[in-house]
């Protein structure tokens, strides 16, 4: 391994450029997660209503986002929004929108599953003391469903972070795109740079996701213990 490679990391403003790219990545992930969670929780509650057409539509929404790979979703929105709907969004906004809709879709299923796994008896006990629909949701069902949702939600976050690696495909200036620019600029003088640049990006992703997935595991364990 030549030693010139590692210098690529520190040369000039390379490292701070990488960090800048990482910030773009994180920002898109964060905004998408927040928007997605809010929409997903609301739609997830609606999926427990006995309204068949509504449930069918929401199920369709979920299945579409589940079946189409995220890469393809990105290109669908990237190409079709401007062409068919005359909506010209910058690439990072398109990505945020796609990720948010994807998070929301997955979230509807997490929320629905958790709400439905609260025992039927709990619902009836709430009805028996005269709670209205929303009171029942608020005081009985959601507080009990919440701990069931948490581990899956945190896992979903790690998936979003990993999926942000696709941003480069639609030319967002994310950490990978900037990494590639640096690699190309130094290709002649330090061919080993590729190893170090991708290495550091690899570590960046690991450093974000590892704590999140540990947290998810911890939450899951606590949930299982609480059940016994």
């Amino acid at each position: 391994m030549a030693h010139s490679g590692i210098d690529v990391l520190t040369a000039g403003s390379n490292f701070s450029r990488l960090l800048g790219g990482l910030w773009v990545t994180i920002k898109i992930a964060l905004i998408a997660i927040i928007i997605g969670l809010i929409i997903g929780v609301l739609l997830g509650i609606l999926r427990t209503l006995p309204n068949r057409p509504l449930r069918f539509i929401l199920r369709l929404y979920l299945e579409f986002f589940r079946i189409v790979p995220t890469v393809v979703l990105l290109f669908l929105f990237y190409y079709i929004l401007p062409k068919e709907f005359n909506v010209n969004l910058p690439a990072d906004a398109v990505a945020t929108l796609v990720f948010a809709l994807w998070v929301a879709a997955e979230m509807t299923d997490i929320v629905r599953g958790a709400l439905e796994s609260v025992p039927q008896h709990q619902k009836e006990a709430g009805q028996a003391i005269g709670l209205t629909y929303w009171q029942l949701q608020r005081y009985v069902l959601i507080p009990q469903a919440w701990p069931l949702c948490l581990p899956a939600t945190v896992n979903l976050m790690t998936r979003v972070v990993k999926t942000t690696s696709l941003l480069m495909l639609i030319s967002v200036m994310d950490v990978i795109n900037i990494g590639q620019q640096i690699i190309e600029a130094n290709n002649k003088t330090a061919p080993n740079g590729v190893f170090w640049i991708y290495g550091i990006i690899f570590i960046f992703y690991f450093m974000i996701n590892y704590p999140l997935s540990r947290w998810a595991k911890h939450l899951n364990k606590r949930r299982l213990e609480a059940n016994h």
């Binding site: 990993k162 696709l166 690899f202 690991f206 997935s213």
Partner: peptide, 19 residues
């Protein structure tokens, strides 16, 4: 589990030949 497939592929395809 905690890193994206895309970076894993870049490593295999672009960085490993260096080794």
């Amino acid at each position: 589990r905690n890193t994206p497939l895309l970076i894993q592929l870049f490593f295999l395809y672009y960085a490993f030949p260096q080794l």
